[in-house]
């Protein structure tokens, strides 16, 4: 099961990546669990203040489920307008 993971703004800068494709680790079924797992490599995902996430371009909570081929994004609170 593969996922496309995107990072934006200060989160992307801190991690040094804008995107990566990963194999979903066994036992990881939610966005929150994915954050914890990726946080082992990208500490900023665990330390970022008020981190937000989206699955398939919809804002979501940490309990949102993951499916094969999903596009998951992590980013700080938005500041447009």
């Amino acid at each position: 099961m593969t996922l496309k993971v995107l990072y934006f703004a200060s989160v992307s800068e801190a991690i040094g990546l804008t995107a990566e494709t990963i194999d979903l680790p066994a036992g990881v079924t939610t966005v929150g669990a994915l954050r914890q797992r990726l946080g082992e490599r990208h500490a900023a995902l665990l330390t970022a203040k008020n981190l937000r996430a989206a699955v398939n371009r919809q804002m979501c909570g940490w309990d949102a489920p993951l499916a094969d081929g999903d596009e998951v994004a992590f980013f700080p609170p938005v500041t447009g307008g």
Partner: peptide, 22 residues
């Protein structure tokens, strides 16, 4: 739009660049 649309602002000032806090 200010809380839901995924835009992020980064300001450039004489002291350097910084991401705008929500």
């Amino acid at each position: 739009l200010k809380t839901r649309a995924p835009f992020w602002k980064k300001e450039e000032t004489p002291a350097g660049a910084r991401w705008v806090d929500a």
